[in-house]
């Protein structure tokens, strides 16, 4: 296997009875990057991680992680990876130090190194002073931080993080993201991060894959995804928006998507499209227009367009194809 590639899957498929959770996933993740795996709930992100860790066997296709086959060499994969899965997985009756000590023992870190590493990580995350406390009494943010420390404890070249900031308040989430970026950057590890937080993906990831219903829809650098979204977002502030007006807006020429949000209207349109017909329609419909903003499509726009049904116009054709994206990225790496 190419040593520049951390994860390679080919037609990876997993069925649960009649449900196809992962559907022909073909993907390459280069080493040393933060790869963001975006998708709505139930899109197959967690199942993909389980398949890559060898916790589940694929129904079809195959995958290699760090050069090891997930069917035959899953022990070697788990030895070389760290994971923060759907739940933090900490032993809440044990102290922070005991939790790390246990996972350090599992990784067979020598005692001295284990203790040095625990101190280093807990100090970095601001948890050292509370190392003797039972984890059960901690806040969710602190537990997530500790779980990140656990995943990084044995200096794995690859870590899997399954929605690490889910359920955290914005301050705790931002702090954890910062820690993640720093720790991953310092160690140069490859991070496979699943999330449905687009700001998080945009901030942390150098390569993003979008998955829906088990199918990979697109892969690319956040800027590539954004720029190739071939769209602009028009935000209209004003008063008097109604569902009927929204329906009317959706029927206008050039409008790809429209939605009402907190008393303003967001419209997705192709670039260079004039907003005059839109404004005229709104005024005629009785909306008191106060302000109109035009901006390039955000990652969120691209993501929503991709995962929403009936918007194939901005689908794979406009973005990097799943096969093209990571390979070209890998070549650059």
């Amino acid at each position: 296997m190419d040593s520049a590639i951390a994860i390679r899957t080919e037609n990876l498929t997993r069925d649960f009875a009649a449900v196809r959770a992962v559907d022909g996933l073909t993907l390459e993740v280069p080493r040393g990057i933060v790869f963001g795996f975006l998708g709505p709930n139930g899109s197959g992100k967690t199942t993909t991680i389980r398949l890559l860790l060898g916790l589940l066997e694929p129904s079809a296709g195959h995958a290699q992680v760090l050069g090891f086959d997930t069917r035959r060499q899953s022990d070697a994969i788990r030895e070389r990876t760290g994971a923060l899965l759907e739940h933090h997985g900490l032993y809440e009756r044990m102290t922070a130090l005991e939790n790390l000590d246990f996972f350090g023992r599992i990784a067979r870190l020598p005692r001295t190194e284990r203790h040095r590493r625990m101190e280093q990580l807990l100090t970095h995350l601001g948890l050292w002073e509370r190392r003797h406390e039972i984890v059960n009494n901690w806040s969710r943010g602190m537990k997530q931080k500790l779980a990140v420390a656990r995943a990084l404890l044995h200096r794995p070249p690859l870590i899997f993080l399954d929605e690490p900031t889910a359920g955290l308040d914005p301050v705790a989430a931002a702090a954890l993201r910062e820690d993640l970026a720093e720790l991953a950057g310092e160690a140069g590890v490859t991070v496979f991060l699943t999330t449905h937080n687009l700001a998080e993906a945009e901030k942390l990831c150098s390569l993003i894959g979008v998955i829906r219903n088990g199918k990979l829809l697109a892969v690319g650098h956040p800027n590539q995804l954004r720029s190739q979204g071939k769209g602009q977002r028009v935000t209209v502030y004003g008063q008097g928006f109604t569902p009927q007006i929204l329906t009317g807006v959706k029927g206008l020429d050039g409008v790809q998507q429209a939605r009402l949000r907190n008393h303003h209207l967001e419209v997705q349109m192709p670039p260079q499209t004039s907003t005059a017909p839109l404004v005229r329609f709104l005024v005629q419909a009785g909306v008191a227009v106060e302000e109109v903003h035009r901006e390039k499509a955000t990652l969120e726009d691209v993501f929503l367009t991709l995962v929403s049904e009936g918007s194939e116009s901005l689908g794979n054709g406009a973005l990097l194809s799943p096969q093209e994206g990571p390979r070209s990225e890998a070549a650059r790496a």
Binding site: E79, A83, L90, F103
Partner: peptide, 9 residues
Amino acid sequence: TLETLLATR
């Protein structure tokens, strides 16, 4: 905690 335990070596 089981899945995290199973995800180790």
